[in-house]
Simulated assay, not measured.
Amino acid sequence: MRMKKLLFVVVVIISSVGAKAQMLALNTDVMLDAFQTPNLGVEIVTGERSTLGLNVFGNHNPWGVDMRITGVQPEYRYFISGRPMHKLFVGLGAIGADYDISWKGKKYDGMLFGGGLTFGYVLNLSQRFNIDFHAGFGLLFYKHSEYYKNDSYKEDFYVGGVPETNADGYMLMPTRIGVSVSYILK
């Protein structure tokens, strides 16, 4: 339910900003696609040297691994080259995700949010196609229920029908690493 509300807000924001945009591009991160995590991004020119982008992603049991992730990543980019969607850029982004992962005999069920910096380079292939190389790092805050697979989650981690978290914290880690292919619509 949370993701449906978030998706609705994202569509409304993109629609209102996109109406005044000079240039609009759709993209997909081929590295996320390679990890069986479908994703879609929109990038809108907001100034002579800047863009505003939003990427949504999610997966469910990629390669048979017991995992589910859904998330969103808004990002502001400043292009050092002096032209948006062209050459070097630095970005300021955020991330929010909901996850349920089984890893090495443990289950992690929770959410994370955070922000960080992204650096990259956009290679223009033609008037309509770009390849975007990017890497970013940042601070992520998480809150989840962490338990062994054999634990009785329903009995041990629910209080009054509400799931209790037993792990929270933060970590400095990559927030965005990839190669995106973009198609410029207008």
Rank of each mutant, 00 (worst) to 15 (best):
F8P: 02
V9I: 13
V10F: 06
V11P: 01
V11I: 10
V11L: 14
V12Y: 00
V12N: 01
V12F: 10
I13T: 09
I14H: 00
S15I: 00
S15T: 08
S15A: 15
V17M: 12
G18H: 00
A19F: 10
K20I: 09
Q22E: 13
Q22V: 10
M23W: 04
L24P: 00
L24W: 05
L24E: 14
L26D: 01
N27C: 02
N27S: 13
N27K: 12
N27I: 00
D29N: 15
D29Q: 02
D29E: 04
M31S: 05
M31I: 13
L32M: 15
D33S: 09
A34G: 09
Q36D: 10
Q36P: 01
T37V: 05
T37C: 06
T37S: 12
N39Q: 03
G41S: 02
G41V: 03
V42Q: 01
E43S: 11
E43V: 13
I44P: 02
V45L: 04
T46R: 03
G47N: 03
G47T: 04
E48P: 09
E48I: 05
E48L: 08
E48F: 04
T51H: 06
T51R: 05
G53P: 09
N55L: 11
F57Q: 06
F57S: 06
G58M: 04
G58D: 00
G58R: 02
N59D: 13
N59M: 08
N59H: 10
H60D: 15
H60V: 11
N61L: 05
N61Q: 13
N61W: 05
P62T: 06
W63T: 08
V65Y: 13
V65F: 14
V65M: 12
D66L: 08
D66I: 09
M67W: 09
M67D: 13
M67R: 14
R68N: 15
T70N: 12
V72E: 03
E75Y: 07
E75S: 09
Y76Q: 08
Y76E: 08
Y76I: 10
Y76V: 09
R77A: 11
R77E: 08
F79G: 11
I80R: 07
I80Y: 11
S81L: 05
G82L: 04
P84K: 06
P84H: 03
H86P: 08
H86K: 11
L88N: 11
L88E: 10
V90R: 02
G91M: 09
L92F: 15
L92G: 13
L92K: 06
I95P: 00
I95V: 14
G96P: 00
G96C: 03
A97Y: 09
D98T: 10
Y99D: 05
Y99R: 03
D100C: 08
S102I: 10
W103C: 10
W103D: 15
K104C: 07
K106I: 07
K106P: 01
K107H: 12
K107V: 14
D109I: 15
G110S: 07
L112M: 15
F113A: 14
G114E: 01
G114Y: 03
G115Q: 10
L117K: 02
L117F: 12
L117A: 13
T118D: 12
F119A: 15
G120W: 06
G120D: 06
Y121N: 06
V122R: 11
V122A: 07
V122Y: 01
L123I: 12
L123R: 07
L123M: 12
L123G: 07
